[in-house]
């Protein structure tokens, strides 16, 4: 299990990469491992407004469905269209090619509410949520 140090994390196992005032969002390696083989990702449309904590995508494995929640508020400016044809990217490369959306932050201070990699790793190793 890996926990890249340049990312921030949520209790629901999303990761955030801050770049140029935007937040790139995906699910963690731990989350994809719990789900098993991902077979479908239902993504929102560019332009959708999100509030922190709102559900924005669902990830389906063969026998489970899981919601993905927005770690921060803002407007979706990009979605990873590659997941439509290759949902397995979420399993194979959750922190890079398996990203889901990019959010233009409306309140950068919300980033302070997220965990750093050490705190997230501790949470997972103590039994997750």
């Amino acid at each position: 299990m890996s926990y890249p140090e340049n990312l921030k994390y949520t209790k629901e196992h999303e990761w955030v990469l801050v770049e140029n005032g935007n937040a790139r969002v995906g699910i963690t390696s731990y989350a994809q491992d719990q789900l098993g083989d991902v077979v479908f990702v239902e993504l929102p449309e560019v332009g959708t407004e999100l509030k922190a904590g709102a559900m924005f995508a669902t990830v389906e494995s063969v026998k489970a469905v899981s919601d993905v929640y927005a770690p921060v508020s803002g407007t979706i400016v990009e979605v990873n269209e590659a997941l439509n044809d290759s949902p397995e990217l979420v399993n194979e490369d959750p922190y890079n090619d398996g990203w889901m959306i990019v959010i233009e932050l409306s309140d950068p201070s919300e980033l302070d509410n997220l965990m750093d990699s050490k705190a997230y790793q501790k949470m997972v190793e103590e039994g997750g949520e």
């Binding site: 098993g36 083989d37 077979v39 479908f40 389906e60 494995s61 063969v62 397995e88």
Partner: peptide
């Protein structure tokens, strides 16, 4: 044998 259910869905 065991069938590839993930492949079937993808």
């Amino acid at each position: 044998g065991r069938l590839d259910e993930a492949g079937a869905a993808r």
